[in-house]
Computed example of a mutant assay.
Amino acid sequence: MKLYIKNMVCSRCKMVVKTVFENIGIIPISVELGEVELKNDMQQEQKQEVLKSLLSIGFDLIDDKKSKTIDKIKTLIIDLVQNKNNDLKINLSDYLSQELHQDYNTLSNLFSEVENTTIEKYFINQKIEKVKELIIYDELSLSEIAYSLNYSSVSHLSNQFKKVTGFSPTYFKNLKSIKRKQIEDI
């Protein structure tokens, strides 16, 4: 049995979700971003207990097909930005189509209908949040950040950053009061 879970975005999320199941006495076969695989079906009371525990820590079970697809799109984009953005050698649309085995236009229309934003804007917002994180850490230069996030140039990164945040990356770096957004709030 596979369950789909909303708002899983990192390895810590996987550990927390695994613990939720184990605390209820269910040992998952695997826990990946956005999904948990179980050996057997859960009883209704177990499912309600899992749901209650997940909701209390910011996660949710996904039941309908549209929500599962949206969550898979978000999970793929977050993983791409956080873990392997510079490895992407094809267009985002081709990548999503290949990973989800669906036509990109179908995915795009569904995403826009449900999320009130485009996949591309969601991807850009995720990248800008990653740029903010890297600027705050102050370990990489702007050109290194641009390269690591697969921007064509520092100018491209700076223009996109300013368009989304209203600030230049340099101005943002000098602001101490601006906080980053949590991934699930983007």
Results as ranks from 00 to 15, higher is better:
Lys2Asn: 09
Tyr4Thr: 01
Lys6Asp: 02
Cys13Asn: 10
Met15Phe: 04
Val16Trp: 01
Val17Lys: 04
Val17Leu: 03
Val17Trp: 00
Lys18Asp: 14
Val20Gly: 00
Phe21Gly: 02
Phe21Asp: 03
Glu22Gly: 08
Gly25Cys: 08
Ile26Thr: 13
Val31Leu: 10
Glu32Ala: 15
Glu35His: 08
Leu38Glu: 06
Asn40Lys: 13
Asp41Cys: 03
Gln43Ile: 11
Gln43Met: 12
Glu45Pro: 03
Glu49Ile: 02
Leu51His: 00
Leu51Arg: 03
Ser53Leu: 04
Leu55Ser: 14
Gly58Cys: 07
Asp60Gly: 02
Lys65His: 05
Lys68Ala: 10
Leu76Tyr: 13
Asp79Pro: 09
Val81Phe: 07
Gln82Ile: 13
Asn86Trp: 03
Leu88Ala: 05
Lys89Val: 05
Ile90Val: 15
Asp94Glu: 11
Tyr95Ala: 06
Leu96Asp: 14
Gln98Cys: 02
His101Gln: 05
Asp103Met: 02
Leu107Pro: 14
Val114Glu: 09
Val114Trp: 03
Val114Tyr: 10
Thr117Asn: 05
Thr117Met: 15
Thr118Met: 10
Phe123Tyr: 15
Phe123Ile: 09
Asn125Val: 03
Lys127Val: 14
Glu129Ala: 15
Lys132Trp: 11
Glu133Trp: 13
Ile136Thr: 14
Glu139Gln: 07
Leu140Asp: 12
Leu140Arg: 06
Leu140Asn: 12
Ser141Gly: 14
Ser143Gly: 02
Glu144Phe: 04
Ser148Leu: 05
Leu149Tyr: 08
Val154Glu: 07
His156Lys: 02
Leu157Ala: 00
Leu157Met: 04
Ser158Glu: 10
Phe161Ser: 11
Lys163Val: 06
Phe167Lys: 07
Ser168Gln: 07
Lys181Cys: 08
Lys181Tyr: 12
Gln182Pro: 02
